[in-house]
Nucleic acid binder design. Structure first.
Lengths: 227, 227
DNA sequence: GCAAAAGTATTATATATATCATGTTTTTAA
DNA sequence: TTAAAAACATGATATATATAATACTTTTGC
């Protein structure tokens, strides 16, 4: 579950991609490669996180536990995304991340992240842009949660998943995910999600086959999510 | 309402603060100073925004109009904050900003922002950290909107305002803001906000005096907002 | 200083959606 | 390979909160 990074100058590691080629060797020395099985916790709210995880393969959910059993999913991550604390100060984080598929990650300690900025002028600009984009997404999502009814929120959730993970050759969403997780992402309950799905399946807007979901009428979903 | 920036190397302008002293003169030449009266639109969703506004005084709301009359406030900004598109690509923005008090801003065109990065190594790091912080706030707010009931959301809204704008010597929130705006920020309606306020006033948790709001029992509000 | 507009106060009603309850199927672990 | 645990399916009920309707009060522009 842990080893030195053997080769990380591949396009999927955000960090190495943004560093000068000559610097990547130091990333290899200072970073660690962690693998996580489906369902495993990558980082947990309240824990001290002294570095960043860069997802190189797999998928994860970033979530927060509420009291007893109520979980809320804040966002999803796929290869190329960053997990763990943002910025570069040591800090405990208020949010957990769990692997939804088997994951490979590069863990880079804050020390080394900090040391990398002066030497890699492009790095902070890349981070800046990454965060700016995520911020924009976050604000859109905020809006959705605050203004749309359940249908709209579920539509938005499906569209995000569609955009982030794409579809396979059969048109099925590439991420196998439980209905409960979709509900948690849309800010609703499983039961309500089920009801909405039933309606949409009847209308031919989506099609399900076990855990696989196919969006048949993308336009209809878009209409729901910006009404 | 528009003039060349006369003097902007003061601590309140995020951009100048993050640049080398020698570079600030160029900011002065390339930037423009815009002033906005209370209620005036600073930037409007759909418009092309080819630069960033740096608030040096006053307060503003960042919001999105929904169809007919439904408005949602995404966040507030005070002196030191950035408005307008984030990142540095020319782009139309999905979000509007309106002055809540008379505002002074420095407008820096994207061209000059871009040109400033290579020369001011600290600049992109400052931006990165700014965005990282805002991202964290955004994700917390997302959570609130998705999981808390109205009471909790209103409590959260008041606490944010309290934290962002502070209180005067009488303990009143320093930002004079309409109930409708608080409701829009909390993702609810004026009427519901009114009901919740009535209860809290009766309980002595808050006190109102026209537009002025005083939080008497901060602890009680905190309890509401993380239940 | 006055008219118009924006903001504030309040109740009654409607409805969307969570909660509860119960059974079935699929997946996981031993 | 079976037992246990998640995940899925579905209806009935309760409730929080938006909507609607109406009147009063303060602020703003002319």
């Amino acid at each position: 579950m842990f080893m030195k990074i053997p080769d990380c100058n591949k396009p999927l590691c955000f960090f190495c991609r943004s560093c000068q080629p000559a610097w990547r060797n130091l990333n290899r020395i200072n970073g660690k490669k962690y693998s996580f099985k489906k369902g495993e916790l990558i980082c947990k709210e309240g824990e001290l996180i002294d570095g960043m995880y860069f997802l190189t393969s797999g998928a994860a959910k970033v979530h927060k536990q509420w009291g007893n059993a109520h979980e809320n999913i804040i966002r999803f991550a796929r290869a190329g995304d960053v997990l763990g604390f943002r910025g570069m100060s040591d800090n405990t984080f208020a949010i957990s991340a769990t692997a939804l598929e088997d994951c490979n990650t590069c863990f880079i300690p804050n020390e080394h992240v900090k040391a990398s900025f002066p030497v890699n002028p492009n790095l902070s600009i890349q981070f800046m842009q990454l965060y700016a984009n995520e911020l924009q997404l976050a604000e859109m999502r905020m809006n959705n949660l605050a203004n749309l009814d359940v249908k709209g929120r579920i539509a938005g959730a499906l569209l995000s998943l569609h955009q982030k993970f794409g579809v396979d050759n059969k048109g099925h969403l590439r991420l196998r995910i439980s209905r409960q997780d979709i509900a948690s992402y849309a800010g609703t309950t499983y039961e309500t999600l089920f009801r909405v799905f039933s309606i949409w399946i009847a209308k031919g807007i989506i099609k399900t086959e076990g855990k696989s979901i196919k969006i048949c009428k993308l336009g209809e979903l878009k209409k729901e999510s910006d009404a």
